[in-house]
Write a protein that binds this DNA or RNA. Structure first.
Length: 634
DNA sequence: ATAGGGTTAG
């Protein structure tokens, strides 16, 4: 596309038309072309109104241009209105409308327009099929896809590269990998797009090897190919690989540089690994390249910072957004950020502010809000919002909202109410529901309800060893060693391994991972010395180790020993040893933080005057001056 | 005028 003209230049083209009488449609068409993609809705509307006032009905050709203009300016309704008024649509107009609907993600509508086009006796052309095929892909409608494939052959489009790529993409997204591959292998002309469609498809189904081998064999790699690899790794949970490909990309001698989509793909990898320093580097990169002016980037940055433990930076990114850029997703990001950090009150006020600014909440908003209330013990507030979801905001509660409320009630010890709520749910209770109930029974030491929840979970997610471990721990607490042995035997028979507890901490941009009882680290000796000194220091400050968290059938002394070597303590000790006084420590754990460690870290934060931020699988704990942001409610 | 993108409970 040519460079967009300045608003003044466009004004000077439109204004003379507005003072003249009706002209031939061909006089207006080029103006609408110029307005397309300029996001100057007002100017387009003015011209349209001028024509309407003079009784000028656009013909199909002109309507096509106007539909494109409206669609590109965010006004789909006007585009549809125009389209419907044209009695004799031509191919161009159909294409324009199909493109408009596709752009707004209205796949069903696109298919409807395509069908109508058929009834007008047209097969479509090389500009029709790519969009229609994309919709088939989005709908996973393989039958429609095959049908469109057939029509595209009849229309003689089989050699068109755009159509070819769209076909490959459609087959990949519908899970017909073989058909896609066959098309790819038999196409004589292939460009980067067809390769990229395949790579993305393989990544989507989790076939990393196939995607990698294609990428390595590719000779015409472009920015999309690199991004496909990065986002594929991220989506498959391979954050480290995503980060190293990103580095490789920066090093690669080609001209290819990360664009905004690449950045969007790499940020979740930073978040996953809690790689705050890497995240900051990427933030710097967006500032250097001007990508940071993109509101989507700011939102993704906010989410990254929140997940890396820096709520301050997350807020800063959010406040970089102008008021009209604060979409529901932006608000959701902040509400969820507050919730996960245990700032329920702030989550609630962010929600209220969102409503005040006229942004409609959606289901994600309420999962964030409810989990925020739950983490902070705002029981009544949470219940109030839950009940207002549908009544006030027309958002249908989904299973995840029920899970939040089960958690909200359960955490507060209202297990019976939680159980009753599960019974009244309009949908089937899934793992999230029973998982919340199990965790709540653990917290309240209610073995009976725990057994009930666990029974459901063993069926729903038999491969999740965490559930067995949790119940087994509860049996251990209750001294029911027989049941403990039974569960352990079950675990063993099924060949399941307890996922090892691990924590990591980033120091000078490098992550250091510790497993429970780890002695492999080069600094292990110093770390253990520091930890061995801790109990006496802490005991002097009034701390008693809570051995109920050791959960082994061993003597009290041994239990205490095991506690000192939990991975989160090792990571904290390492942090104390390797950072300057006063620097905040950020530790990430792959499981839930242990209760004894929680107490110990509170004391450490006081004794060593350090802010310590621990992210566990559920939430953040901010330790400072002997207190935790969760106020021991977790 | 093809391919890639942000927010989600235990």
């Amino acid at each position: 596309m040519s460079k967009p003209l300045s608003i003044h230049r466009l004004r000077s083209l439109v204004d003379p038309l507005l003072v003249q009488g009706p002209l031939h449609p061909s006089a207006y068409a080029p103006i609408f072309d110029l307005l397309t993609g300029c996001n100057l809705l007002k100017l387009g509307q003015q011209l349209h109104a001028h024509m309407a006032l003079r009784g000028l009905e656009p013909n199909a050709f002109l309507a096509a241009k106007m539909v494109a203009m409206y669609a590109s300016s965010g006004d789909l309704d006007s585009a549809v209105f125009l389209f419907r008024r044209v009695e004799n649509p031509n191919q161009l107009l159909f294409n324009s409308m199909i493109r408009a609907y596709t752009r707004y993600g209205c796949s069903m509508k696109t298919i409807q327009v395509y069908c109508r086009m058929h009834r007008f006796g047209s097969n479509g052309d090389n500009f029709t099929f790519p969009f229609v095929l994309k919709c088939c892909a989005d709908l996973s409608d393989i039958r429609m896809g095959r049908c469109v494939h057939g029509v595209s052959l009849r229309a003689g489009c089989e050699l068109d590269m755009y159509v070819g790529t769209s076909l490959i993409d459609m087959y990949m997204k519908c899970g017909e990998l073989c058909s896609a591959r066959k098309l790819f292998d038999t196409t004589s002309e292939r460009d980067a797009s067809s390769w990229n469609a395949l790579i993305n498809g393989y990544m989507k189904v989790g076939d990393i090897c196939a995607a990698e081998s294609l990428f390595r064999r590719m000779r015409c790699k472009n920015i999309v190919s690199w991004t496909a690899l990065v986002s594929g790794y991220t989506q498959n949970g391979l954050a480290d690989k995503a980060l190293s490909v990103f580095d490789e990309m920066l090093r690669a001698e080609s001209e290819i540089k990360p664009n905004w989509v690449t950045v969007m793909s790499i940020l979740p990898a930073c978040a996953h690994s809690a790689a705050l320093d890497r995240g900051r580097q990427i933030h710097d990169y967006t500032r250097r390249t001007g990508l940071d002016s993109n509101p989507l980037i700011q939102i993704a940055l906010a989410a990254m910072y929140a997940k890396c433990g820096s709520l301050v930076d997350a807020r800063r990114c959010f406040f970089n957004l102008k008021a009209d850029e604060r979409s529901s997703v932006a608000w959701n990001t902040m509400i969820t950020a507050y919730a996960s950090h245990g700032y329920g009150t702030e989550a609630v006020s962010a929600f209220e502010e969102m409503i005040k600014s006229g942004v409609c909440p959606d289901d994600v908003t309420f999962t964030g809000l409810l989990s925020g209330c739950s983490h902070s013990g705002l029981i009544d507030t949470g219940l109030k919002y839950f009940h207002s979801m549908k009544a006030v905001y027309s958002v249908e509660p989904k299973v995840e909202h029920y899970a939040c409320v089960v958690d909200l009630l359960g955490r507060a010890g209202r297990l019976v109410e939680a159980k009753e709520l599960i019974g009244r749910m309009p949908m089937k209770a899934g793992p999230s529901i029973w998982g919340a109930l199990l965790a709540a029974s653990r917290k309240n030491r209610n073995l009976e309800i725990a057994e009930m929840a666990a029974r459901e979970l063993f069926v729903l997610e038999p491969e999740n060893s965490g559930n067995y471990v949790l119940l087994s721990n509860m049996y251990a607490e209750a001294g029911k060693w027989m049941e403990v042995d039974n569960l352990r035997a079950t675990l063993k028979i099924q060949g399941m391994k307890k996922s090892p507890g691990g924590s990591w901490i980033e120091v000078n941009g490098k992550a250091h991972l510790f497993l429970g009882g780890d002695t492999l680290h080069p600094q292990a000796k110093e770390i253990y010395m520091l930890l061995e000194d801790l109990p006496s220091k802490i005991k002097a400050a009034g701390y008693t180790p809570d051995t109920s968290f050791a959960l082994h059938d061993v003597s009290e002394e041994e239990k205490e020993q095991n506690l000192t070597t939990h991975s989160e303590k090792l990571a904290v000790a390492f942090g104390l040893l390797n950072t300057n006084p006063g620097v905040a420590l950020r530790v990430t754990k792959n499981l839930r933080i242990c209760g004894d460690c929680h107490t110990a870290i509170k004391f450490i934060s006081k004794i060593y005057q350090r802010e310590i931020i621990v992210r566990d699988v559920n939430r953040f704990h901010h330790f400072k001056d002997g207190f935790c942001s969760c106020r021991d409610y977790w």
